[in-house]
Each structure stands twice: as C-alpha cells, then as structure tokens.
Simulated assay, not measured.
Amino acid sequence: MAPARPKSTLRKPVTRDRAIQVAIGLADAGGLESLSMRRIAQELGVEAMSLYYHVKSKDGIIDRIADAVINEIAPRSPEDGWKLALRKRAGSSRAVLARHPWAVALMRNTPRLQR
C-alpha cells in the first residue's frame, strides 16, 4: 500500500466552478488569447484531457466565464426607484468590466449576450 501524501501536498479537487475561476484569472492576467485548455489544466494541476470531464470545450469555458462575469453585476433591488436602480446597475457594470476588461469584447461578439 502506497503511503498517503501529507495533507499540505494534496491538491484541491477539480470542479467546473474551480476551472471557471482559474480561466477568469488567466483572462484577467493575459486576456482571452491567454486561455487554452492546456493552460487551464496546468493551473489546476491536471492533464488537459482531465479538464474535458468538467467542461466540453474551450467554447464552453468561454460561455461560462461570460456568464460568471455577468452574474457579478449587482441585480436590481426591488425597493429602488428606476433612476437609483439604473445608477447602481451602471456603476456595478462599470466596476465588473473594469476588473475584467476582456469581457467587453467577448460580450460584443457573443450574440446571446447582446440582449
């Protein structure tokens, strides 16, 4: 029986959400062109083929990181009037897109996000 690795060297399990967060971090650091399945897998400490268990393709990753960025934008509060709600939403959108500048081009080029 092989000896168990110490807990400090055990890596976190790969999940779809973790892969998406790593992809966002890579895009934030180097833009969308820095994303590849191999690079994401490397950051997760797995082989690229293992990543395909959690996401089907690079396009799937890109769709999910776009959704994650959109979900960072603060939702409208029902108690706010329309002017305050619009101001808050615009401010939140600006802050999120400032953190993720690559997302502007992604949303511009993704038809389902142009609503």
Rank of each mutant, 00 (worst) to 15 (best):
R64V: 01
I73Y: 09
D80M: 10
R115K: 13
H54E: 05
P78H: 02
L35S: 01
I61W: 04
L84D: 13
V96A: 12
K7P: 03
R87T: 14
R89K: 12
T9S: 15
S57Q: 10
I61Q: 00
A23V: 01
R64P: 02
S8N: 14
S50H: 10
W82G: 07
Q21I: 10
V96E: 09
I62D: 08
L106T: 01
G25K: 05
Q114V: 03
N71H: 14
A68D: 06
A4D: 08
W102G: 04
A68H: 08
L84M: 15
G25F: 07
A41K: 02
D80Q: 14
I61A: 04
T9G: 03
L10H: 13
A90S: 11
V69N: 10
A19C: 08
H100M: 05
A19F: 06
A98I: 11
A90R: 12
H100G: 05
R16L: 10
E79K: 07
R87A: 15
L10W: 12
R108W: 07
R94H: 11
Q114I: 08
H54N: 06
T9W: 11
Q21L: 11
D28S: 15
M37A: 01
V69L: 04
A27V: 07
P13N: 08
I40L: 02
A66S: 11
A41Q: 04
A2N: 14
D59L: 06
E43T: 08
G60D: 15
G81M: 01
R112N: 09
A103I: 06
M1Q: 14
E47V: 13
A95Q: 12
Q21E: 15
R99Q: 06
G60W: 06
P6Y: 00
V22Q: 07
P6R: 04
R64K: 14
E47A: 14
A95R: 15
L44M: 03
A48W: 05
E43I: 00
R87H: 14
S77K: 13
A4Y: 10
K83F: 13
D80C: 12
D28V: 08
T15Y: 07
L32E: 10
P6H: 05
L51D: 15
L113K: 10
G60R: 11
M1L: 11
K12W: 05
G25M: 12
K58T: 03
K58I: 14
I24T: 01
S93Q: 12
A68Q: 06
L84H: 12
V55N: 02
V69H: 01
K58N: 07
Q21C: 06
H54M: 00
Q42R: 05
V104K: 13
I65M: 06
D67Q: 08
M107W: 05
L26C: 00
A90D: 11
I65L: 10
A29E: 11
K56F: 12
S92E: 08
G30E: 06
R76A: 15
V96I: 08
M37S: 09
